[in-house]
Nucleic acid binder design. Structure first.
Lengths: 200, 200
DNA sequence: TCCCGACCTGGACACTTGACCCAGTCGGAT
DNA sequence: ATCCGACTGGGTCAAGTGTCCAGGTCGGGA
């Protein structure tokens, strides 16, 4: 094994664990599976981390900081507000569809965090990060179209995340893109109706 | 142990497993934990079920048939359409809030089923059952108010489930009822706008 | 009454898991 | 060049897991 600083080894293990979790689920993320994915000897695990739980905690911290809806940020302004929202939601769902296991892993991690007392705060942080990303997007759209939202941004952000979560969950189960697009049409219409002319 | 027909023992074990899963999660539903919850000797498990997977499969079948949004059926007609929908959604969320672990267990079961090839069909069935329940409610409301929905019922049902799923997920994470009620207001408004006067 | 099949269960097996010890190895500061 | 602390990794342990066996026990039909 190449010599490696402990911090770097921790990062490698977190990445490997993320791949294992996406491929086979949280339950399959055993120390041995992670170490095999990272191509390290088993003992390296407990040299870098005190315990498996410590790895999971760091993994969740990483996810919260780095992965919040990053894909949706490349928002394209096209036509009117409703169309833009619809395209944005469709783009989001396409990201989910392009790597369903990743999104499923995020859901599982949230659930795992909720079940683990020491990590329940992490689930909250994960969602706060989602809400923050959603708020950013909503503000950008409002500015682009020179309009304001009828409800306060935090509330709008929660509505948007509620919709994307529901959309994701439904699609993951039956992978019916046509049905999902029907829901997207509804969501775009409903969200657009919450905008009003005029800047702040 | 009292003498018991095999079928009845299977049912008891399924109920015990359901309690264990709600309390401690799917991962904790080991044969020993289930058997302890049911107050049976370990060997009874494999007398009643060929394997743990068979128990889980039967458990999911039970859930799908018996628990689909049954609570929301006691729908109260109050005031106008929008108010009725809002009350219905609030009642649904109250059910979730009254026993959060149960709903969390349902989510985990869906996820588990999605991860298990032989059970992925079960997840689909679970959601079809949700959609059917939602469709029933939507039709009842439409009839009560003498109106029709602008989109076909299956599509309306999916929209409703998308909203309740997102609502549930968000509430489970931060348990912020006030924020959730804000989303409910939005959902009620949006859904009500999809109705039009006149019977079929 | 007897008997047979359905039901019960203590115990064991093979395997996986998280954890960790300790003898070895490297590399940069002195 | 040497040395010491950081790093490596084979091997091992106890605990926990799903599964199964083999012999016991009971109740109802003949």
């Amino acid at each position: 094994m190449v010599r490696m600083a402990a911090a770097q080894r921790r990062a490698s293990l977190v990445q490997a664990a993320l791949r294992v979790i996406a491929r086979d689920g949280v339950a399959a993320a055993t120390t041995r599976a992670i170490v095999a994915e990272a191509d390290m000897p088993l003992a390296s695990f407990h040299y870098a981390f005190r315990s498996r739980d410590e790895l999971i905690a760091e993994l969740i911290r990483f996810v919260v900081e780095n992965e919040a809806l990053a894909a949706a940020e490349a928002l394209s302004i096209a036509g009117d507000l409703r169309t833009t929202i619809r395209h944005g939601l469709k783009a989001f769902l396409d990201v989910v569809a392009s790597d369903p296991l990743r999104e499923q892993a995020m859901l599982e991690l949230t659930q795992y965090a909720l079940r683990t007392p020491e990590l329940s705060g992490s689930a909250r942080l994960q969602y706060e990060s989602y809400y923050r990303a959603a708020a950013g997007i909503l503000e950008a759209v409002a500015q682009q179209f020179d309009l304001t939202w009828k409800k306060p941004i935090p509330q709008m952000a929660r509505i948007l995340i509620t919709l994307t979560d529901g959309l994701t969950l439904g699609w993951l189960v039956d992978r019916d893109m046509a049905a999902a697009e029907g829901v997207i049409d509804f969501a775009a219409e409903a969200l657009a109706s919450l905008a009003q002319e005029g800047p702040l």
